[in-house]
Design a binder for these strands. Structure first.
Lengths: 361, 361
DNA sequence: ATGAAAGCGCTAACAT
DNA sequence: ATGTTAGCGCTTTCAT
C-alpha cells in the first residue's frame, strides 16, 4: 500500500524510506516517546503545549496520518458505528440517516453502512460482516427480521439502537413510533372527516403493511368491512401511485357513495395518485381524496397540497445517535425507549372538517 | 466490550471466560494452529475439507466472530472502501451509491461513508478521518474541492475513483460525463425545437452551475444574450421549482415572444415548476416549457411527462466499483477514464419538433 | 507531564 | 496441507 512514503518533495527526511510513516517515526523526529505522540493525537490537552508543537511539527514534516486500525485494535474502541438501512433509495430514511451521520461524525465516530434489503435472506451474513469490524455501536433503521439475528445482538456486547418502530421486545435501545397507532388514528380521523369509502395503496415494506392492517381493522370495527387494496413490490415510486389510482378506478364504480379516500403507505405513492388524478381531470379532494405518509419535504408542495402523517425523521435520527453516544460515554447504562410519536397533517388532498380552517393534529 | 463471552448457554466451554473469543481459542478447540483457522476463514478452499469441518465446529461452539480490525492491521488490507457523497438527501446520487454498494459488498468490501457537504470547509478533516481508516480505495461522488485535498490523494497510496464528472486532471481513475457538453447540447437542442426565450433554475451545486454556464454561453453564441436565472441554496426541492416559476412569471411579461423555456439543474426543481404551472393553470408546454436533469425515476411519471437529460447513475456506480475492484485485484494498473455520456429525453414538457413522434436523443 | 514494556488479534513469510 | 515465528502500529498500564 506504500502509505505516505513521502511528503511532497521531502523524501529524504524520512527515517525509513519505503515504509509508511508511523507514530514511532513521528516520535523519533520530535524527540519524544511514541506514547506522547499518541496522547497528543487523542487528547492534546494532556500534553504540554510546547511538546505538542514539536509533535505537530514532526507530523507536518512527515505527512503522518493516524492509523486508527491499529489504535482500535490496541484500545478495543473502533470509533465506528454501523448503520443499517433497508434501502438507500427510499427517501423516507434520508433525514434520519443524515441526522445520525451528522451527530456521530461530530462526536468523532464514523459510519459503516449496511444495507439489509427488505428480504431477510443475507441478514446473518450482513451481521457477521458488521460485527467483524467491531463497531462501538449499531443503529438499525428499521429492524432486523430474523429472530436469530436479533438474539445475536441481544448478548449485550454492542449497544444497539433500533429506529422507526416501537417493538414490544427491543434488542436494546429504541426510538420510534407505533405503526399500529398510525393506522388506527388515520382511520378514526378520516371517518371523522366523513369518508366512508376507502382504498389502500402500499408497497411491501413490513412496517407499512402493519399500518395498513391496523387501519383496516379499525375501519372494520367501525362498520366498514371493505377496503380495496393494492400492494406493490419494491421502493415506493410515483408510478405505483399512478398505476394504483388507475387500477382502483377500474374496480370502483365511479364516485358512488361519496368520494374515494385513498390511503397510501408513502408520500411518494400519494404524490403519484395526485399526478394520475390531474392527468385524468379527476378533482381532489372532491372525487378522490388522498392521504400520504411521512410528510417528506415535497408533501406541502404538491398540488393540491398533500395531507399526510408527519414523522420527524431528523429528530428520530438525532435522538438515536444521542442515546448511543450517551451509552458509549457511560452516562446511561439502562435501556432507553423513546416514542417520538407522529402528527396527522390535514392539507388540501382531504376534505376539511371546517372548510375555513386548516388544522394540524 | 466483552465480546461474545458466551454462546447461549455454553459458557463453560470457553477456554478463557471473561475474555472475548479469539482465533487462537478456536484453533485450540479445533486442535489446529491459529494460521489454519485464519486460512479457513479467508480461503476455505486451501484447507482440507475435514480440517475445515473441525474448525467450523469450533467456531459454532464458541460463537467466534472474525476480527477484521486485527486482520487489517496484520495484512495491510482493510477491505474497506470509503465512499464520499456530497449529501445523503440528494436523490440524484442514490442510484450510483446503490450500485457501488452492491458491487463492493458482493466483492467482500465494506463501505465507509463520508459526507462532504457542498462547502469545502471541513474537507481536509474529512479526508484525514477517512485515510486514518486505511481504506483500500476511495470513491468520490462528485469531486473534492480544494486543491490541497486533491494533491493529498494524488500520492498514489490509495486508489481513487472520481464519479459524476469529467475532470481534465483526474486524481486517479474517473467515470463520469461532461457537464459542459450537457449545457451545450441542451441549448442546441432547445434552439432546434424553436425556443427563443429561456430561463434557468439552479441550486448552487458546482456541477449544476457549470452546466448552466455552458448552456448560457452556447445560447449567447447563437444570439440569445438574455437568460433569466435564479440560483437557490441547498438540496434541490419541489419548493425551489414552485418559487422559481412564480419569480420568473413576475419578471417575464407573460408569453410575449413565444413560450418560456425553463431549464432546471435537477428533475426535482423541474417537477416543482410543473406543479406550480398546474396550480396556476398555466399550460405546459404551450405557455411554459420545462427541462429537467437526471431522469430520476419519477421524471417519466410527472404530468405532463418531464423532458430531461438522462444520466445512468447505476451504470456509473457499477463502473466505478468495477474499476476500483480491478485495480485492487491487480488486473489493471494504469489510470482509467470513462465517459458514460448522457441522453436528451424529449417527453411532454417540451414541444415536439415532430408532434407525431417522440424521440430519445 | 512523559516514558518503557507488553500486548491487542490477526496474517505474512517461511518452514515442514 | 499445516505449523512456527515474527511482527502490523498503536494504546494500556505502570513507572518516573
Amino acid at each position: 500500500m506504500n502509505w505516505q512514503t513521502m511528503t511532497g518533495k521531502k523524501t529524504e527526511q524520512l527515517p525509513r524510506p519505503g515504509r509508511s510513516v508511523t507514530l514511532g517515526d513521528v516520535a523519533r523526529l520530535a524527540g519524544v516517546a511514541p506514547m506522547t505522540v499518541s496522547r497528543y493525537l487523542n487528547e492534546p490537552s494532556i500534553v504540554r503545549v510546547e511538546t505538542g508543537l514539536k509533535v505537530q511539527r514532526a507530523i507536518d514534516q512527515t505527512g503522518y496520518v493516524h492509523n486508527r486500525l491499529a489504535g482500535a485494535l490496541a484500545s478495543s474502541r473502533s470509533r465506528l458505528v454501523a448503520v443499517v438501512l433497508p434501502m438507500v433509495t427510499n427517501p423516507l430514511f434520508s433525514d434520519t440517516f443524515e441526522a445520525i451521520n451528522q451527530r456521530l461524525s461530530q462526536a468523532g465516530y464514523q459510519v459503516l453502512l449496511g444495507i439489509s434489503g427488505y428480504q431477510s435472506q443475507q441478514e446473518q451474513q450482513l451481521l457477521d460482516v458488521i460485527l467483524s469490524r467491531r463497531p462501538d455501536g449499531i443503529i438499525l433503521t428499521g429492524t432486523l427480521h430474523t429472530a436469530a439475528s436479533r438474539n445475536r445482538l441481544r448478548s449485550g456486547a454492542v449497544p444497539v439502537v433500533e429506529t422507526w418502530d416501537l417493538s414490544p421486545e427491543p434488542i436494546d435501545m429504541l426510538v420510534g413510533f407505533s405503526h399500529e397507532q398510525v393506522g388506527h388514528d388515520c382511520a378514526t380521523h378520516l371517518l371523522g372527516l366523513g369518508y366512508r369509502q376507502f382504498a389502500l395503496l402500499a408497497v411491501n415494506d413490513p412496517r407499512g403493511l402493519r399500518r395498513a392492517e391496523s387501519f383496516i381493522q379499525t375501519l372494520a370495527a367501525q362498520g366498514i368491512p371493505h377496503v380495496l387494496q393494492h400492494v406493490y413490490q419494491g421502493v415506493p415510486t410515483l408510478a405505483h401511485g399512478r398505476t394504483g389510482l388507475s387500477a382502483l378506478l377500474e374496480s370502483v364504480p365511479a364516485t358512488q357513495g361519496g368520494p374515494l379516500m385513498i390511503v397510501c403507505t408513502s408520500d411518494t405513492i400519494a404524490h403519484g395518485v395526485l399526478t394520475e388524478a390531474a392527468a385524468r381531470g379527476i378533482r381532489v379532494p372532491e372525487e378522490v381524496a388522498v392521504l400520504g405518509f411521512g410528510d417528506m419535504n415535497f408533501a406541502s408542495q404538491t398540488f393540491p397540497a398533500l395531507s399526510t402523517v408527519r414523522i420527524d425523521g431528523s429528530q428520530m435520527g438525532d435522538t438515536a445517535a444521542r442515546m448511543l453516544l450517551e451509552r458509549l460515554q457511560g452516562q446511561v447504562v439502562g435501556a432507553g425507549v423513546k416514542d417520538i410519536g407522529f402528527t396527522l397533517v390535514d392539507r388540501d388532498s382531504t376534505a376539511q372538517s371546517n372548510p375555513s380552517t386548516k388544522r394540524a393534529w
